[in-house]
Amino acid sequence: AQEYRALYDYTAQNPDELDLSAGDILEVILEGEDGWWTVERNGQRGFVPGSYLEKL
Rank of each mutant, 00 (worst) to 15 (best):
A1V: 09
A1P: 09
Q2F: 15
E3V: 09
E3M: 14
Y4W: 09
R5T: 10
R5Q: 14
R5M: 13
A6S: 08
A6V: 12
A6M: 06
L7M: 15
L7H: 03
L7T: 06
L7N: 07
D9P: 08
D9C: 07
D9I: 03
Y10A: 00
Y10T: 02
T11S: 11
T11Q: 12
A12G: 10
N14Q: 11
N14Y: 09
N14C: 10
P15V: 10
D16A: 11
D16Q: 13
D16S: 14
E17F: 03
E17T: 03
E17S: 04
D19G: 08
D19T: 09
L20G: 00
S21Q: 15
S21M: 14
S21G: 09
S21L: 13
A22E: 12
G23M: 01
D24V: 03
D24L: 02
D24K: 00
I25Q: 05
I25V: 13
I25H: 15
L26D: 02
L26W: 03
L26M: 13
L26C: 15
E27Y: 10
E27W: 11
V28C: 08
V28F: 06
V28N: 04
I29G: 04
I29Q: 07
I29P: 03
L30R: 15
E31C: 13
G32I: 03
G32S: 14
G32N: 13
D34F: 06
D34W: 04
G35W: 03
W36M: 15
W37V: 13
W37E: 02
T38H: 07
T38D: 09
V39Y: 00
V39L: 01
V39A: 09
V39T: 03
E40M: 09
E40D: 12
E40N: 15
E40K: 12
R41Y: 08
R41V: 11
N42Q: 09
Q44V: 14
Q44A: 15
R45L: 05
R45Y: 05
R45S: 09
G46N: 01
G46V: 02
G46R: 03
F47D: 12
V48W: 00
V48R: 00
G50E: 15
S51D: 13
E54T: 08
E54C: 06
E54A: 07
E54K: 06
K55T: 07
